[in-house]
Amino acid sequence: MDLHTVRDVHDARVHTPWRPGDAWLAGGTYLFSEPQPHLRRLVDLSRMGWEPVRHTRDGSVEIAATCTVAELSRYGRRSTARAAPLFEQCCRAFLASFKIWNMATVGGNLCNGLPAGPMISLTAALDGTCLLQAQDGSRRRVRVADFVVGDGLKDLGEGELLRSVTLPARAMAARTAFRQVSLHGLGRSGALVIGVLDPQDGSLAVTVTAATVRPFRLRFPLPPDAQGLAGALDRTVADADWFDDIHGLPAWRRHMTFRLAEEIRRELTADGVR
């Protein structure tokens, strides 16, 4: 879609003061999907030259905000990390064409803050941390689970940039389980639940997205029984937190989340091998 109100596209490599009507441009799959009458200028990140995925000295994985879904999928398929299959599972949750995969970015998916954003699901489940950069160059870090605070709402200041997301080495070595459900075979996710079993202390983290207006990551020092898991979900996710749109009613999303979470609990704990 043409954005008729946009008067200029600025190269982000050349710093210029942020002004009302500016927006960061990465892949642009959302920006160009619908009218954006409030925008006057796009600040283009496509030539920043950030490495899509890299390993840090401590073994963590840093994903650049400009990393595309296609690049992340290739990394996941080549990686030998135990949690690597989760990358492809979340990429496939897009249910998008190869054209979208080659343009849509990890950072764009997080910054849209939509409940069904599968890059939110992936990075929140693996205890990811966002690196945010303000216009004055100062930086801060926020956990992905705290970065998205509601449907389309983020902990992001005016002109602030999501630079990257870092996944800790400990999470990359974890055993994972993935469940996703939609009302239709090729429909948007109605509920997406991911379990992560820590290889060091045996703790279990269960992350709920798509069914809720924001990600919820529940961590259990010891894997709970079925009643403990259901009780924790009931206490953590309030009635108002269940998402409501044409892709699923709140009651259905809640029911499916509890069901999928229990399946994951059984898969990752001793209950699943009895």
Rank of each mutant, 00 (worst) to 15 (best):
D2R: 09
D8Q: 03
D11W: 06
A12H: 05
A12W: 01
V14Y: 08
P17W: 05
G21D: 02
D22G: 00
A23C: 05
W24P: 04
L25S: 00
L25G: 00
A26K: 12
A26R: 03
G27E: 13
T29D: 00
L31I: 03
P37L: 12
P37S: 14
P37H: 11
H38I: 07
R40E: 15
R40Q: 14
R40I: 04
D44R: 01
D44V: 00
D44T: 04
R47K: 15
G49E: 01
W50P: 02
H55C: 08
T56L: 13
G59M: 10
G59I: 12
E62V: 07
A64W: 04
C67W: 07
T68H: 03
E71C: 07
S73A: 10
G76E: 07
R78T: 02
R82H: 06
A93N: 08
A96L: 04
F98D: 12
I100E: 02
V106L: 14
V106R: 13
P115H: 10
A116G: 02
G117R: 03
P118N: 07
M119D: 00
S121Y: 14
A125R: 00
G128I: 01
G128A: 07
T129C: 05
T129H: 14
C130W: 04
L131I: 05
Q133F: 10
Q135D: 11
Q135Y: 07
R140H: 08
D146E: 11
V149G: 05
V149K: 03
G150M: 08
D151H: 12
G152F: 11
D155S: 12
L156S: 09
E158Q: 10
G159C: 00
E160G: 01
E160Y: 01
R163K: 00
S164E: 06
A173W: 01
A174I: 09
Q180Y: 15
V181Y: 01
V181K: 01
L183S: 06
L183G: 13
H184E: 13
L186H: 13
L186V: 13
G187E: 00
S189M: 06
S189L: 02
A191N: 00
A191D: 09
G195Q: 11
G195I: 09
D198P: 00
P199G: 15
P199S: 09
Q200A: 15
D201P: 05
D201K: 01
G202Q: 09
V206P: 03
V208A: 15
A211D: 07
L218D: 06
D225P: 13
D225Y: 01
L233W: 08
A240I: 14
D241Q: 09
H247P: 08
L249G: 13
W252I: 09
M256V: 15
T257M: 05
F258S: 15
A261D: 06
I264Y: 05
I264K: 05
R265E: 05
L268W: 06
L268D: 08
T269W: 13
